[in-house]
Amino acid sequence: MSVVMITIATLVVLGATAAVILYAAAQKFKVYEDPRIDQVEAVLPAANCGGCGFPGCRAFAEALVKADDISTLLCPVGGAAVMAQAAGILGKEAAATAPMVAVVRCNGNCDVRPKTNNYDGASSCAIAASLYGGDTGCSFGCLGLGDCVDACQFDAMYMDEKTGLPVIIEDKCVACGACVKACPKIIIQLRKKGPKSRRIFVSCVNKDKGGVARKACEVACIGCGKCEKVCPHGAITITNNLAYIDDEKCKLCRKCVEVCPTNAIHEINFPPRKEKTTEEKTEEAPAN
């Protein structure tokens, strides 16, 4: 009997001491955490993709709570809606942002951009790019080894086996920018998704002179300047033999798309054109 009593007593005393120590420790090492961090974190998408520039959603929540002006901070995954929610919790102003999407600015598939050599190194664009210009005559274009696809955490990209180019699945793309960072050739860019997801961009980053670019790839931008001249909104500039369309200024009139002799300018999600233009296009095609 007494053995049992002693055992119980010892355990009780032990337990109590441990509890006291634990409590004291918890008090001593307690860190004050702003409860709003948890609230904000709860509205964030929990993708932990790093698209905001912070190491994860919690870190971003902390930054949002700490910063007085949050207009420069953006969660690209959640977009304006989530930012508004977070701003609401914190009583701060979120910047109004247009939704973005990644676009691939290279259209040089195997038919129009012939291979000039065979790459036989480790399968990584970064490694190939640091070795040499690439397996075609164009030293700016896509290497086709899929670093961007590997970087995408949202399954929003895949490599098209036929063209050898990456494809972005618009609906899944959250514009976190991981692929932009992964691409050593800086081919992928985040652009405004545009009204009804319509957008126009130059699908080429080749800065070689027109003749050289054209020789390497049939659909390269040759820097001829036709688009720059035709654009009524001054959205197009040509630098280093390469046209660039400013998505802030572009009004989606599509004039440039028509004049581009190499079809380097792409329009996305537009309805088909009126009869006349389509005819012209088909007639022109063989001449290219």
């Binding site: 070795l131 040499y132 210009g133 690439g134 030293s139 070689d208």
Partner: peptide
């Protein structure tokens, strides 16, 4: 002028 070097860059 530009010329492609051993690595294909101009």
């Amino acid at each position: 002028d530009d010329v492609a070097d051993a690595s294909g860059y101009k």
